[in-house]
Simulated scan of single mutants.
Amino acid sequence: MKNEEAMKTEDLVSWCKSYLANFRSAQLRPNPNLGQTHPTEWQPPEFGGIKINFDVAVRQGTSAFSVACVARNHEGRCLAWKVKRCNGKLQPVEGEALAALQAVLLAKANRWADISLEGDCLPVIKALCAGSGETLHYGAIIEECLFLSQNFSSCKFSFVKWEGNHLAHKLAHLPCSDTLEGFELPVNLVRIITLKLKL
């Protein structure tokens, strides 16, 4: 009787060890990507590359919005910027897609070869990275961006939080009746960039 009880105890310990091992193996593996956070600061492109940030400003109380984009090199120097006012009521995500298209068109007009498009609208960036907008109501805009992006030797898409897209955001909110553009930033925005680069 004592021997039988001893065997049962040993079996129980063995069963517990086996159960614990099975339980541990069934748990979700740690995903290193879960701990990653999206960047909150603007980062320059690699040497020779050009990063174009884009954003949209929906004019509250009106049927108009503005799309803006700004291109900078690896030193953070502005190469070109553009703001365009458009008429119509759109959802913000549709406006963001149009801003991305404006950025691609800016790169094409300047014949840049190595570009990186960066915005703060995650659905738009995900669609561009996935290489398809077929299932989206703004999919035609995404598809046009992707079609035009084939003209570049390199075209990347990246997401940055609003703080890192500050310059494009400020440009989109400039008073604009039609189109504003240039190679040098407005003076009040140059100060913002200078301060950011010093930090």
Rank of each mutant, 00 (worst) to 15 (best):
K17G: 10
L20F: 05
D120G: 05
T62P: 00
C16D: 11
F54N: 06
W15K: 10
C86V: 14
E144Q: 10
C69M: 10
H137D: 15
L12A: 14
P186W: 07
L197R: 13
T62F: 00
T37Q: 09
N53Y: 04
D114A: 03
V190L: 01
L171I: 08
A97W: 01
P186R: 02
C155E: 10
G49L: 02
G95K: 05
R77M: 12
L28K: 11
F23M: 09
L136T: 09
F54C: 06
N22S: 14
F147A: 12
L122A: 09
C78Q: 07
Q60G: 05
K126F: 03
V124H: 01
F147K: 10
L148K: 04
D114K: 12
L180E: 06
R29I: 12
A113D: 15
W42T: 06
E143S: 15
N73E: 07
L136R: 13
H166Q: 13
E41Y: 13
A107L: 02
L117Y: 00
F157R: 07
N165Y: 09
P30I: 15
K198D: 12
S63Q: 09
I50D: 05
H166K: 11
D178Y: 00
G49K: 08
Y19N: 11
A109E: 12
T40R: 02
A26Y: 01
